[in-house]
């Protein structure tokens, strides 16, 4: 059962049961972006407020499995109020955490680039997901939506 406990850590179950930053922001001015996983029906909608290079507020709605919903909740807590540079770095680090497993199978070089879990804080709880390849898309759903939303905001300006 160790793998399963690794997947469903207490932090993950806590964010699933009590999601943070749940709700909506008036859009506009907030930027609204949706993420959708057609295979399992998981959905997340993000509302992003960016002011002076800072992600000043983030709210989200959605439904899906514990991994997709806790990941979006953990993400919102990690990036809210952060300068965009830090947000971008966190997205990159998180995606690296999720793909680390696959790259370890492909090239040794990439496998050497280990993610420094200390920079991830609570997000590190999601590392158990990489042992369940079919669940990685659940964990990355909100993050891909955030990346898309921030890119759309950058393109508007």
């Amino acid at each position: 059962m160790s793998n399963l406990e690794d997947l469903y850590r207490e932090i993950i179950l806590d964010h699933y049961r009590s999601p943070r930053n749940r709700g909506e922001l008036p859009s506009p001015p907030a930027h609204k972006v949706e993420g959708f996983n057609p295979l399992c029906g998981d959905e997340v909608t993000l509302y992003l407020d960016v002011h002076d290079g800072v992600l000043s507020d983030i709210k989200l709605t959605g439904h899906g499995c514990s991994i997709s919903q806790s990941s979006s909740s953990l993400m919102s807590a990690a990036v809210k109020g952060k300068p965009l540079n830090d947000v971008n770095a966190t997205i990159e680090t998180f995606k690296q955490l999720m793909t680390g497993h696959e790259s370890a199978l492909t090239t040794e070089e990439e496998a050497d680039e280990e993610v420094d879990l200390r920079t991830l804080g609570e997000l590190a709880a999601l590392q158990g997901v990489v042992k369940f390849p079919v669940r990685i898309k659940c964990a990355t759903l909100a993050w891909n939506a955030l990346r898309q939303g921030l890119d759309e905001i950058a393109n508007q300006n």
């Binding site: 059962m1 793998n3 399963l4 997947l7 469903y8 399992c40 899906g64 499995c65 514990s66 991994i67 369940f132 669940r135 659940c138």
Partner: peptide
């Protein structure tokens, strides 16, 4: 969620 049900059942 059904995906979590199936994941636990797999164990």
């Amino acid at each position: 969620h059904p995906h979590d049900v199936a994941q636990v059942l797999d164990q």
